[in-house]
Amino acid sequence: MSFSTATLTGSSTATLTGSDGREVVRNKVPVWRRRKAAANYIALLPYVFFALFPFYIMFITSIKTDQEINNLSNSPFWATGIATEHYVYLATNTGFFNHWFVNTLIVTVAVTVISVSIGTLAAYALARLRFRGVELFGVAVFITYLIPQTLLFIPLIDVINTIDDYVPIRDTYWSLILTYPTFLIPFVTWLLMGYFKTIPVEVEECAYLDGCSRLGALFRVVLPMAIPGIMCAILFSITLSWNELLYSLVFIQDETQKTISVGVITELIRGDIYYWGSLMAACFIGAVPIIMIYGFFMDYFTSGLTAGAIK
């Protein structure tokens, strides 16, 4: 591996004039320094390997034939060919694409829209407006953000049954659209509160002078300036609702209403013989959309996590 040592240790390179009159950059970085830089990369490799290992296993297992998987003398790390049978099986014999994938998508989109809208309004009020109890509400948001789902899933069944008497949401993904915002709204609010505080008040005051109402100022001035923060809130809502397991496991038994995580765990694992190929194919496909989004918007993820936790 070669490194641009000039950028590594900017001050230790010297610009000299060579014998032919052209400028020559002579590298004064000692060999031990370069070795040390290489050592950093080498030390990082185990982490990368560790982080990516299960993804690789999921993928490689999903493209093997059953025969190849079950031949235990073969190396489990390689596939001799590419078999699509497990993916075909998922599409034809299970509700993976027809139901679970679609349900997850619907729930994720609906929940994200609901949570980010409600959270944005709340965050704006808590960060900017002056009214009695504003600090108290801020603390309340923080506390609800930290209440684990473990404490709530049992009573929430009761709440859903009560609502079901009026609107049929029991055992449908609507119960998830209703309950996921409980952990997303506090998170979005907390995240955006920090973000709104960084936007100068003066721009808003200008908007008021120009005749904007409060909502007008929020939508025309504040939100456009807060787009990175809102993007981050959207991305987190998508990730957290796509990945949720406990509520959907508890609230939904109907196979056609399940989300990916629950569908895979409850419908694809049957009896004592595991169909590793189709199971891994399902895991891989279920993870791909999130990984792709993450690939495109990685910087929003990292900035948001930092802001959500530290600020």
Binding site: F3, S4, F55, M58, S261, I265, C283, I290, Y294
Partner: peptide, 26 residues
């Protein structure tokens, strides 16, 4: 590190964003 920063960061952060239930099955 200075080179391949995004690759290294991206890959070590991946376990956090992927669906836990599915990666745990892996």
């Amino acid at each position: 590190i200075l080179k391949l920063k995004r690759f290294f960061r991206g890959s070590v952060l991946l376990p956090f964003v992927a669906p836990t239930a599915l990666t745990t099955l892996g």
